[in-house]
Measured scan of single mutants.
Amino acid sequence: MIVFVRFNSSHGFPVEVDSDTSIFQLKEVVAKRQGVPADQLRVIFAGKELRNDWTVQNCDLDQQSIVHIVQRPWRKGQEMNATGGDDPRNAAGGCEREPQSLTRVDLSSSVLPGDSVGLAVILHTDSRKDSPPAGSPAGRSIYNSFYVYCKGPCQRVQPGKLRVQCSTCRQATLTLTQGPSCWDDVLIPNRMSGECQSPHCPGTSAEFFFKCGAHPTSDKETSVALHLIATNSRNITCITCTDVRSPVLVFQCNSRHVICLDCFHLYCVTRLNDRQFVHDPQLGYSLPCVAGCPNSLIKELHHFRILGEEQYNRYQQYGAEECVLQMGGVLCPRPGCGAGLLPEPDQRKVTCEGGNGLGCGFAFCRECKEAYHEGECSAVFEASGTTTQAYRVDERAAEQARWEAASKETIKKTTKPCPRCHVPVEKNGGCMHMKCPQPQCRLEWCWNCGCEWNRVCMGDHWFDV
């Protein structure tokens, strides 16, 4: 396979590697080409510095992935760790964990309700045991953590790749202090920090972006993250068709209702045909949960890209028209025109101005929308079919299609509260000796007794199943 190397943020060049090629071997190839010592090179990928003893497969490097290699003399205490030698983080029983690669970060837990604080980093599902597709590297999971809308060759929703760059020099040479644990960490600028490894760059702020994971991409090709779309790892039924499908869209209502993408497309087109989208002054033209839940309008309007190009163009047109109407304007009634106009409040005669090729020149009556006339309008008909009709959803289907309910059931079956801080902690095999993952707590306690870890627990039921 081919990976592209950008040395000291210059133009990239291809390097041929195998899945079992080590990072140090990659350094040696680059060092020979650039005429520099291999031990002064640092390989940066997806916000993480890659260790010498890791392989291309370990690092989730795919065909035509772009890695950054910078030349920086080692500072005291760094060289041993980078070589894969006596790194205290690798000691058996050590409590410190390697910062998780962005290629394996899962933010789907952050669609849980606000009262489930902490689960994004504490609760991990076991539903990723799908067998890898044919042709994928051994052991590589097909679980997708992110979804994007690819405006490039795909023109559809695709699995996405999370990447990070330095907000100062805009190069992907920043190593994160810690990985993101929720969508806010990724979507809110300057929320996460790190250290830029580019020479002479003092940058410390992280800037995240997404790429389409279905095809090789260049540095400049980015895609918009659709953070309401998630892999259906909890096997929730769709609120409309009641099938279990994946991926799904999880509405931001209190129940976190789930809808499959085909039904979401149908829901949007139906509402669009009836012009029953909601115009929100802050958000724009949007839709609420299909069950009509309060405070559930979709905030990231790129989710409506699921409509496809033709329907999305209609959505944008109707949204612009609705904006004009909300501002007190009118639409030209001549067939084939429909231009938005903003006449004076007491102006009865409205002319669709033909300047700049935008208007048709038609003069019409503001009251009856017919060709302009003197005197009273002959008839004014009330528009028919403008009443909002509820999208029919079966109550039982709505009850079963809740992301929140599956989460709470998982928590109930696989977790116990920490005796000190009461945060839910998952036990997935292993011994009875637990350690609270909350940095402010870190209590060592017994899963069996529910009390602080002691010699009695150690001698009596340390390794009970």
Results as ranks from 00 to 15, higher is better:
F4Y: 12
V5Y: 07
F24P: 02
V29N: 07
A31H: 02
A31R: 01
R33M: 10
V36W: 02
P37V: 07
A38M: 06
D39M: 03
D39F: 03
Q40S: 12
E49S: 01
I66E: 05
V67K: 00
V70M: 04
V70C: 04
R72D: 15
Q78E: 15
A82N: 09
G85Q: 11
E98Y: 08
E98N: 11
E98M: 09
S101V: 09
S101P: 12
L112G: 12
V117R: 13
A120R: 11
T125R: 10
S127H: 11
R140M: 11
N144C: 05
K151C: 11
K151V: 09
Q155V: 05
R156C: 14
R156D: 12
V157I: 09
P159Q: 08
T168W: 05
R170N: 13
Q171R: 12
L174E: 02
Q178S: 13
R191P: 02
G194A: 08
S198V: 08
S198E: 11
H200I: 07
A206K: 00
T222H: 11
V224D: 12
L226N: 00
I229S: 00
C238T: 01
C241I: 00
C241N: 00
C253V: 01
I259K: 00
V269N: 04
T270Q: 05
L272N: 00
L283I: 15
C289K: 02
G292Q: 08
S296M: 00
I298C: 01
E309L: 13
Y312T: 03
Q317M: 12
L325G: 04
G328P: 03
G328I: 02
V330Y: 06
C332A: 03
G338F: 06
L341F: 08
P343L: 09
D346G: 09
K349T: 06
L358M: 15
L358W: 08
L358K: 15
G359F: 14
G361L: 07
E374F: 06
T387R: 11
Q389M: 14
A390I: 12
Y391T: 06
V393K: 05
D394Y: 05
D394V: 05
A405I: 14
E409P: 09
I411S: 13
C421A: 01
C421D: 02
V425I: 13
N428P: 14
H433K: 05
M434I: 12
P439D: 07
E444A: 14
W447F: 08
C451P: 15
D464T: 15
